[in-house]
């Protein structure tokens, strides 16, 4: 049983990493035999505007998602901290947690309807305040904003729970001492709370980045990567290269670059995460 489980891990996770690297050195359309091209795929991707653009799009989306998530999540956690009532805390925790249960694909469909240019609910209300006809999914800025909103909507509960736990772990006597000294809430936050929970903030940010750099479901369902290539993330590009254009070698080369980027972030998270994860 253990051997079987290990075999599956080896076959479907470890071997594919090695295979990815090997595949990235060949040119292969899955039909005719692969031809060895050395680092040719990598040379090509360095000059491929579509690849460079997809990394830029992905990093831009990821940075916005993570920044919004951390700021809003931390703000809400600070607000909830003001209440001792476990009922109230539980209620808000449930409310912010529920989106995590919805499939990203399903909620992206819902947001596609809500942000529809002509009939959407969002543009109806914006029209009432004089901003009519915002092209949400039809413009680069609009599509970017909508994807960020879906992702933040869905992930907020996760950072919220992390931050509530971190804030609760600050010893009460520290906060009492600070209050005795007369520090206001803003100063308490920046001088005491934020430094104390900084490992969690860092942890949440890196986890968020790792997830956001693999963004696929939301842009695929809402925009198919468009308009143009405005929301074509790296994973969408890998999907298109390998499974639509049958360039398995080239797709693998892009995967390897993304993989290296994610591994660097994972290593960072592991170093910082150690502080937090083995806490509880």
């Amino acid at each position: 049983m253990i051997a079987a489980s290990l075999a599956v891990i080896v076959i479907f996770t470890l071997a594919p990493i090695v295979a990815s690297v090997l595949l990235s050195l060949v040119s292969w359309d899955a039909i005719s035999p692969p031809t060895f091209v050395g680092l040719g795929n990598y040379e090509r991707l360095l000059q491929d505007q579509a690849v460079i653009r997809s990394f830029w799009v992905t990093i831009k989306l990821a940075a916005m998602i993570v920044a919004a998530q951390v700021v809003i999540g931390l703000g809400l956690a600070l607000l909830v901290q003001r209440f001792r009532s476990t009922f109230l805390r539980g209620l808000f925790r449930t409310a912010f947690f529920l989106p995590l249960l919805v499939s990203a694909a399903s909620i992206s469909i819902v947001f596609t309807y809500l942000f529809n240019d002509k009939f959407g609910v969002v543009n109806y209300y914006l029209g009432l305040v004089g901003m009519s006809g915002v092209s949400w999914l039809g413009s680069e800025a609009g599509a970017t904003a909508t994807i960020v909103m879906v992702a933040v909507w869905q992930q907020l509960g996760f950072v919220f729970i992390l931050f509530v736990a971190a804030l609760s772990s600050i010893p009460r006597d520290v906060l009492e001492a600070v209050a005795m000294d007369g520090a206001g809430p803003i100063r308490t936050f920046f001088a005491v709370k934020l430094p104390l929970i900084s490992p969690t903030v860092f942890f949440a940010a890196v986890i968020g980045l790792i997830n956001a750099l693999q963004l696929f479901d939301q842009p695929w369902v809402m925009t198919k990567g468009g308009p143009g290539d405005a929301t074509t993330t790296t994973v969408i590009l890998i999907y298109q290269a390998a499974f639509q254009n049958l360039q398995f070698g080239y797709g693998s080369a892009i995967s390897v670059v993304l993989f290296v980027l994610l591994m660097i972030l994972t290593w960072l998270q592991f170093v910082a995460g150690r502080k937090w994860v083995f806490y509880a």
């Binding site: 290990l6 390897v256 993989f259 994610l262």
Partner: peptide, 21 residues
């Protein structure tokens, strides 16, 4: 340690070889 290492591998980056298998 090997099992732990695979924990970090995002499924999206190995999808091509997995599909081939």
């Amino acid at each position: 340690a090997m099992v732990l290492a695979t924990l970090m591998v995002p499924a999206q980056t190995t999808i091509i070889p997995v599909y081939i298998i």
